[in-house]
């Protein structure tokens, strides 16, 4: 399964005009490479916009509670089911909790889950990819492992994992932390494979490059070689994977919450808020819109960001 991809890269990679700009020239100083990347990235309007929107969302979710100090779990039973007003710009829910505060609290969880799960999946993917690409002996077994994971039915497995381990983990770490660990691990464990394959492919080609040979000839050991020479050069596919990973993790978390398998009902996340408000779609459509739009907008902006990064960093892996 891995052979074809590996062989096709040199063939389809071709020198595109856009690619020529960013093709990392080994001897060139690093700064100018990132300048090229930035120039290329700037052209992609959607990516710039996506980046700004994503940054805004993250900032408002994490810094917003400083400005908007209503406790998301405070129940004001007289003010329940209210529409947007000055006191509650996003309205209130069926217990009179402030929706804006809950959206921010929920966003923190959702974004945090997204970033942590992405980090875990990147860590795993990069580790396995680099090891497999760099050490010939490990290649076979690690790639078999990757194939094995790719052959697992992921969504059902994810559901099974969440079903099975939610009780022991929430018993050990408390319901929120337990579920957080569970969801992050489950998403991380089921999404590292594409990163591993891309990184491995890049490492394989890098290994044959002159600068690696040169470094080896002056006696650089393996650890140094990987951290100093290989990793900085595979950073581009990793960054692209990172953005896609965040998007994927946010969607997965909200889908789990939507199926009732995510965080407990009293713990807001965007997915959970959406799930809870679907029943009220007709009376209070805004209650469904807020989390729905928040999820969609975040994922959309991250995807655009990733798309731009991909164009800017490495046109050859576009679409993979």
């Amino acid at each position: 399964m891995t052979e074809p991809t590996e062989k096709v890269i040199p063939g389809s990679g071709g020198a595109t005009p856009a690619g020529a700009l960013t093709e990392p020239v080994p001897v060139a100083p690093v700064r100018s490479k990132w300048r090229d990347v930035w120039d290329q990235f700037k052209i992609h309007k959607g990516a710039v916009l996506g980046g700004i929107v994503f940054l805004l969302i993250v900032l408002s979710v994490f810094l917003g509670p400083l400005l908007w100090s209503i406790d998301p779990s405070y129940i004001d039973i007289r003010a329940r089911n209210q529409g947007p007003s000055l006191a509650h710009p996003f309205g209130t829910d069926q217990l009179g909790r402030d929706t804006l505060a809950r959206m921010m609290a929920g966003g923190q969880t959702s974004v945090f889950v997204g970033i942590t799960a992405m980090a875990l999946s990147l860590l795993l993917g990069t580790l396995i990819g680099v090891l497999a690409g760099f050490f010939r002996k490990l290649d076979g077994i690690l790639m078999r492992l990757t194939d094995l994971f790719l052959a697992l039915p992921l969504l059902p497995l994810l559901l099974v994992m969440v079903m099975l381990f939610r009780a022991p983990l929430s018993a050990a770490f408390g319901p929120e932390t337990g579920i957080f660990i569970l969801i992050v691990t489950a998403i991380g464990l089921t999404s590292w494979m594409p990163t591993a394959r891309i990184v491995r492919g890049d490492v394989l080609t890098l290994k044959e490059r002159e600068f690696v040979l040169a470094a080896r000839s002056i006696g650089t050991n393996n650890t140094k070689m990987i951290t100093r020479h290989i990793l900085p050069n595979v950073i581009s596919p990793i960054m692209v994977s990172a953005t896609l990973g965040i998007a994927n993790a946010i969607i997965t978390e909200s889908a789990l919450s939507f199926l009732g398998l995510g965080f407990p009902p009293d713990f807001p996340t965007w997915g959970r808020l959406l799930f809870d408000s679907v029943d009220y779609l007709q009376q209070y459509p805004e209650r469904v819109m807020w989390p729905g739009v928040a999820i969609s907008l975040t994922v959309l902006s991250v995807n655009y960001l990733g798309d731009g990064l991909r164009d800017a960093l490495d046109p050859r892996i576009r679409g993979r």
Partner: peptide, 15 residues
């Protein structure tokens, strides 16, 4: 048990 109505009840009773 985990159930939306019961969690609402819990939150209210806690208050």
């Amino acid at each position: 048990s985990t159930n939306a109505v019961r969690q609402d009840f819990q939150a209210l009773i806690k208050q």
